[in-house]
Design a protein around this nucleic acid. Structure first.
Lengths: 110, 110
DNA sequence: GACATATTCAACCATCCGGTTGACGATGCC
DNA sequence: GGCATCGTCAACCGGATGGTTGAATATGTC
């Protein structure tokens, strides 16, 4: 499953994770601070951040004992581009589109 | 859980379902015809169509004994709008996408 | 060294998901 | 009526998901 879009959409399918993305839109945050407004355990939030990171939607950088989470817009952009293929364009070869997006994503990462 | 976005993203998280949406972009299709190119049972495709319908991404209309599936772009638009809330990247790589689509459309069908 | 904080790991649990198969209700055709 | 076709339903299965708790690993502070 090297398809990049599936984990992105799967990550976006959870409202907690979408809320987290919204929080990270304002600023980078430590894991503990991300977890603070939620009524669930820190471990649960940590797992959500793991899902977001594996989808490429965020990155995590450890500085000292704190792990900073940062929004990575490229993955969202990939999903957005895919959807625009539906909104505005005529029939498209989706497999080719996904190959295109895969290249796009690789492009973004160092 | 009346949140409309979660089922939409969850539906998009499966590559089979995304492919189905791509097929329906060209034209409305009967369930059997949707299932034809896939290496899985008709019942499995029927379930996928159920998921897409519950997310609002398609509608199904019974005419005779055939059920016609139709793309409903509004749901996709809702998800797209949500993502644009994130969009500093909003003017997606439309240039690249258009170049891609131009090649695609020439290459593919007439 | 001792202790507190930040985060993950591991085990566990209930539920959901994607697939199968076989039976079933509707519909169209002869 | 009898039969094939269209599509879903129901039961089942293995694996993923979302949550819990408690222990473990780093790191910072005194």
């Amino acid at each position: 499953m090297t398809d990049p879009l599936s984990p992105i959409f799967a990550a976006l399918a959870d409202p907690t994770r979408r809320t987290i993305l919204g929080m990270l839109l304002e600023d980078d945050m430590a894991v503990t601070d991300v977890a603070e407004p939620f009524q669930m355990s820190l471990a649960a939030i940590s797992k959500h951040l793991q899902v977001l990171a594996e989808a490429g939607l965020i990155s995590r950088e450890k500085r000292g004992r704190v792990i900073w989470c940062k929004l990575e817009p490229d993955a969202l952009k990939a999903a957005s581009v895919w959807m625009q293929g539906f909104g505005q364009f005529e029939p498209v070869d989706l497999d080719a589109l996904e190959r295109f997006l895969a290249v796009e994503l690789q492009d973004g990462e160092g």
